[in-house]
Design a protein around this nucleic acid. Structure first.
Lengths: 148, 148
DNA sequence: ATTATTGCAAACTATTTGCAAGTGA
DNA sequence: TCACTTGCAAATAGTTTGCAATAAT
């Protein structure tokens, strides 16, 4: 398969910052390009170990942090405090619908900040966070048998 | 000053669950009643040490967790992953405008889920998170001198 | 008197750092 | 070649747990 746009973007971001493209970093880029949802550092580590049994956890961390500082990965803390990464959608502003079971995410364009008025307190607004959590169709069907 | 409603609610919640009211727990209730914004475990610990120089960190943790399990404290992870607590607003659904500097929070009633349609993917929606981050008026003025 | 709560110490998890050896540009 | 990157090991931060002493009911 041809290298995807997103994967190229990630690699380009690194070279543009004078960073070197190691096999591991190339693999990282591929993992995030091929994943729909969020990945924890441990998830990434485990995927990395398949092609590189010798990778160390700290290298994975370092690279995740680096990519998130470059802005090509998006880093969020889930509701339970768990750190997760996902490749950034650089192209437009949107929000996410996240499956609490498999963490697959879908984007949607509606933003509650559009036309937002009447906020109290005269704040200077910096940013916002809007996420909807639920069960995706697959997970819902899967879990149906064990539900009460 | 007369004991506030909120403080009573917290204490009542504990007695109703067969838990004992220690001086520390009474103080915890007071701290959260008197605080507008979010408090980290460390913040709470430091406030607790004023009246009880001998408190231990783990007792603070245990009690925070207990109160959050009872539902009288609301626990969230901030954008940077830091755990914070705040007394629950039991009375109605709303969202928060949070000062990123002092973490004071204001509530507002608008909820983006009202009338939300057109979500992709046929999820079963479980919950949502909507927070607006900014600088409150005070912090904005304070910081004005050192701004670029 | 009984049993929950506390403080201490230690365990545990997640994340970060220093450094010598390895590797990409 | 040169300096960035890696793996190892150890450090750090945040949170949790076991247990004997203490205190609430």
């Amino acid at each position: 398969m041809v290298q995807k746009q997103q994967e190229q973007d990630m690699i380009r971001a690194m070279t543009h910052h004078g960073l070197r493209i190691t096999d591991q970093r190339r693999t990282l880029a591929k993992i995030f390009t091929e994943t729909e949802g969020y990945l924890s550092p441990k998830d990434v580590y485990e995927q990395m170990r398949i092609p590189y049994p010798g990778v160390s956890f700290d290298t994975v961390y370092r690279n995740l942090r680096m990519l998130s500082e470059l802005g090509v990965l998006e880093q969020i803390y889930f509701q339970d405090g768990g750190l997760k990464f996902k490749s950034t959608c650089l192209h437009h502003h949107h929000h996410h619908l996240i499956c609490v079971n498999c963490e697959k995410t879908l984007t949607f364009d509606y933003c509650p900040m559009d036309g937002m008025l009447n906020l109290p307190g005269n704040f200077k607004i910096i940013n916002h966070r809007f996420e909807i959590y639920g069960l995706c169709e697959e997970c819902r069907l899967e879990g149906a048998s064990s539900e009460s």
